[in-house]
Simulated scan of single mutants.
Amino acid sequence: MSIQGIFPIEKWDFKSESILADLPGEDLKLLMARKLEQAYKKGEIIFKEEAYPSGIFYIARGKAKKYKLDKDGREQIIYVANTGELLGYHAILSGDNYPDSAAVMEDSIIVFIPKEDFLETLRQSDVLNRRLLKTLSHEFVVLTNSLTLFAQRSVRERLALQLIVVREKYKVDFEPGMPVEINMSRDDLASLVGTARENVVRMLSEFKSEGIVETRGRRIIVLDVKKLIKVANFS
Score class of each variant (00 low, 15 high):
P8T: 07
V222M: 03
L204S: 01
R34H: 15
M105E: 02
L133H: 06
A81V: 03
V111L: 07
K15C: 13
D224V: 00
V193R: 03
I182L: 00
T135L: 04
V165C: 03
V180R: 03
L31Q: 06
R158T: 00
L86Q: 09
Q152W: 14
A190F: 01
D224H: 12
E85Q: 14
T144G: 15
I229G: 01
I92Y: 04
N97P: 06
S191P: 03
F112Q: 04
L128A: 08
R34Y: 15
A51R: 14
T148R: 12
V225M: 01
A160Y: 02
E106A: 04
M1V: 11
L20W: 08
D13G: 04
Y98A: 01
K115I: 04
S191M: 05
D173K: 05
I6T: 08
K15Y: 08
L122M: 12
L143Q: 12
I6L: 07
H138F: 06
L228T: 03
D27P: 07
N97R: 13
E206C: 02
R131Q: 13
L23Y: 05
T148E: 12
L189Y: 06
L36N: 14
K208R: 15
E210L: 10
M178C: 12
F7Y: 09
K63P: 02
F150K: 14
D70A: 09
G5I: 02
F150S: 12
Q4D: 11
A160P: 02
A102H: 07
S54K: 08
I109D: 06
L119T: 11
D72P: 00
V222K: 02
D72Q: 11
T83F: 07
A232C: 04
V225E: 01
T148K: 09
A60N: 08
L132I: 08
L161T: 02
V222N: 02
S16T: 12
E37S: 14
V141P: 05
S191D: 06
R130H: 15
M1P: 11
L147F: 08
F174C: 00
R197Y: 03
D107N: 15
S101M: 03
E49R: 14
R131H: 11
L223K: 13
P24D: 12
R123H: 15
R131I: 13
P24A: 07
V80C: 01
V142I: 14
G177Y: 09
E175M: 09
K115L: 06
A190I: 00
V231G: 00
L132T: 10
V200T: 00
G194Y: 06
R130C: 14
Y52G: 12
K42N: 11
L128F: 08
T195H: 01
N129Y: 11
D107K: 03
A21M: 11
A81M: 11
K66T: 09
G84M: 10
